[in-house]
């Protein structure tokens, strides 16, 4: 057997929220043929090396994938320094992230090898953003929320001008099928919050599947962290790819 090749690069002309132009990491399979796309949303610390690995993983599995640098507006510097500035300023606004995800979806669909289908996946705070995107954007074919914290907001003080709404309160507007991946030892979201999210989805008749893993906490896919759980992560990735095969495959 042989492994398929892929092409990966940083784009400097990614067009995001408000038409602002910045960087995004983009990878796609090397072989010809139409492919689905996946937008990857990074976590709060920033646009890091692990996120580029995730983008290449999708390309390796036959998807065109893009991870916009959600903090590119915050001036020059390395992604970690820019991420620190964003944190000190209270984080990035939901509107900005949703606009960037929309721009990333449009980019993927505009590529000549696109099959027209686009999924969104996010990790940690990016999982929350993925859930939010599923509720606020039209045209997403499948959403994956990996342990997104603060989808449910129990303390109203967490809401502010940048994050004015708890994503759970927008669940009625969710149009895309949703896959949720969670560790049962996670504290944000904790088991109760995951259960309440599932209850809301069930009550509203949404298409979803949730997978909960024992022996895993937050960020257990991330091989650069002690939170990494090889067995649970392998099964979780299988669930992600099965979900995207189901919802993003080219229709005849």
């Amino acid at each position: 057997m042989s492994y398929p090749g892929l092409i990966a690069e940083t784009l400097s002309f990614f067009k995001g929220h408000n038409g602002d132009t910045g960087e995004a990491y983009y990878a796609r399979p090397g072989q010809s043929g139409r492919v689905p796309g996946v937008v990857v949303i990074h976590h709060a610390p920033g646009w890091d090396e692990w996120i580029t690995e995730v983008v290449r993983k999708f390309a390796h599995h036959g998807y065109a994938s893009i991870a916009p640098h959600l903090y590119f507006r915050e001036g020059p510097g390395t992604p970690d320094d820019v991420g620190a500035r964003v944190r000190a300023a209270g984080g990035v606004s939901d509107d900005s992230v949703i606009g960037d995800v929309k721009g990333a979806m449009e980019f993927l669909r505009s590529q000549p090898n696109s099959n027209g289908k686009v999924g969104v996946i996010g990790f940690c705070s990016g999982g929350r953003h993925a859930y939010l995107a599923g509720c606020k954007l039209s045209g997403i074919d499948a959403v994956v929320d990996c342990w997104g914290g603060s989808v449910i907001v129990d303390d109203p003080k967490q809401l502010n001008a940048k994050r004015p709404v708890a994503p759970i309160d927008l669940t009625e507007k969710l149009t895309a099928p949703l896959l949720g991946i969670f560790g049962n030892d996670d504290q944000n979201p904790n088991r109760d919050q995951v259960n309440r999210t599932e209850e809301a989805l069930k009550k509203l008749g949404k298409s979803y599947e949730f997978h909960r893993y024992d022996g895993a906490g937050h960020a257990f896919f991330n091989s650069t962290r002690t939170a990494f759980r090889a067995e649970q992560a392998a099964d979780g990735w299988n669930k992600v790819f099965a979900f995207y095969r189901k919802h993003l495959a080219t229709t005849a």
């Binding site: 992604p79 620190a84 944190r87 960020a219 962290r225 002690t226």
Partner: peptide
């Protein structure tokens, strides 16, 4: 600016 959260580089949760 002091915080206790996911680091960017250090190999801790």
């Amino acid at each position: 600016n002091v915080y206790y959260d996911h680091p960017y580089d250090a190999p801790f949760d």
